[in-house]
C-alpha cells in the first residue's frame, strides 16, 4: 500500500475568460496511492506556491462526491476513468507510475472557462430557475402523509434526484448537451404526484432555457450516463422527451 508515484501532468492553464489558454507540463513526485486526485493537485499547488508560481485554479468543496463542485476531464474522460465517481473520489491507486495525465476543464459553450479548470456553470442555475421546482409556498403544505406515493415512483424519482449538478454529462457528451441534467430534474419532479401539477409548463420552460444556454442536442450516444458520477440513467432523457411532447411552450422571447 505504500506505493509512491511520479507523474507528468499536462494541465490546461487559462488566465481568465479572455485568455486563449494552453497546456503546461508539470512533474509531481512521491504521490501516495491513497491520495485523492484533488489531493494530488493540492501537492502540485503547494509546490507551485512555494516556487512563487500561481497555483492551478480548480473548483472543489466537499471532497466527498456530493456537492458537485469538482470536475475535470482526465485523459479524455470526465471525472477520470472510473464510473460513478467524482474527481474528488478518484484515488491515485488507479494510476501508474510515470504516467502522463492530461487534465482539461469541462469544455462547452454553456460552461465558459473562468480560469484554468474552473468553469462557469450558472447556466444550470438558470435552467432550474426556468422551472425546476414545485411552486409550493412555505406553510401551504398538507400533512406529509396526506398523499401516498408509490414506493417504486419515489425510488425512481430519487434515482433522478441524486444529480449533483456537476456538469460531467455536458462535458462528456460529444455534443455538449445538457439533456441528462435537465431530464433528471424533470423526472425527479414529474414522478411525484406533487410535481405533476405544473409539469407541462415546467418541461417547456426548462427545455427552452436549456436551448437558450447554447447546449447541444442529444444524439443518443449515452456518454452522459457513463460519465455521470451518480450513474443517472438516460431513461430520464426519454421521459423528458415524452413530457415535452405534451408540454406548454412559453412564448417566444
Amino acid at each position: 500500500m505504500d506505493k509512491k508515484l511520479n507523474l507528468k501532468l499536462m494541465l490546461w492553464r487559462q488566465n481568465g475568460a479572455k485568455d486563449k489558454g494552453k497546456f503546461e507540463t508539470y512533474k509531481v513526485k512521491d504521490i501516495d496511492v491513497s491520495m485523492s486526485f484533488l489531493e494530488m493537485l493540492d501537492v502540485l499547488n503547494e509546490t507551485l506556491t512555494r516556487e512563487g508560481q500561481e497555483p492551478v485554479a480548480f473548483d472543489h468543496d466537499c471532497r466527498e462526491g456530493i456537492c458537485g463542485a469538482c470536475g475535470a476531464v482526465v485523459n479524455g474522460k470526465a471525472h477520470g476513468k472510473l464510473k460513478g465517481t467524482t474527481l474528488c473520489q478518484l484515488h491515485m491507486r488507479h494510476f501508474e507510475n510515470n504516467e502522463t495525465i492530461v487534465i482539461e476543464p469541462w469544455r462547452a459553450k454553456g460552461f465558459p472557462v473562468i480560469k484554468d479548470l474552473v468553469v462557469d456553470r450558472s447556466s444550470f442555475d438558470r435552467i432550474i430557475a426556468a422551472g425546476g421546482y414545485i411552486s409550493a409556498k412555505t406553510g401551504s403544505a398538507p400533512d406529509a402523509n396526506a398523499i401516498p406515493v408509490a414506493k417504486e415512483s419515489v425510488e425512481q424519482s430519487m434515482d433522478a434526484a441524486a444529480c449533483i449538478g456537476c456538469g460531467a454529462c455536458v462535458a462528456a457528451c460529444p455534443n455538449a448537451a445538457a439533456m441528462l441534467f435537465v431530464g433528471a430534474k424533470i423526472s425527479h419532479l414529474v414522478l411525484l404526484p406533487q410535481g405533476k401539477v405544473e409539469s407541462k409548463t415546467r418541461t417547456g420552460n426548462m427545455v427552452h432555457q436549456m436551448d437558450k444556454e447554447g447546449f447541444g442536442n442529444c444524439s443518443n450516444e449515452y456518454e452522459c450516463e457513463a460519465a455521470c458520477p451518480k450513474s443517472i440513467s438516460v431513461s430520464n432523457i426519454a421521459l423528458m422527451n415524452r413530457e415535452f411532447m405534451f408540454s406548454k411552450n412559453p412564448p417566444k422571447p
Binding site: G76, A78, N175
Partner: peptide, 12 residues
C-alpha cells in the same frame, strides 16, 4: 455547443 474540443477524446 463545443467551440473547443478536448485534446484527448475518449469514451466511457
Amino acid at each position: 455547443a463545443r467551440p473547443k474540443n478536448y485534446k484527448i477524446v475518449a469514451t466511457k
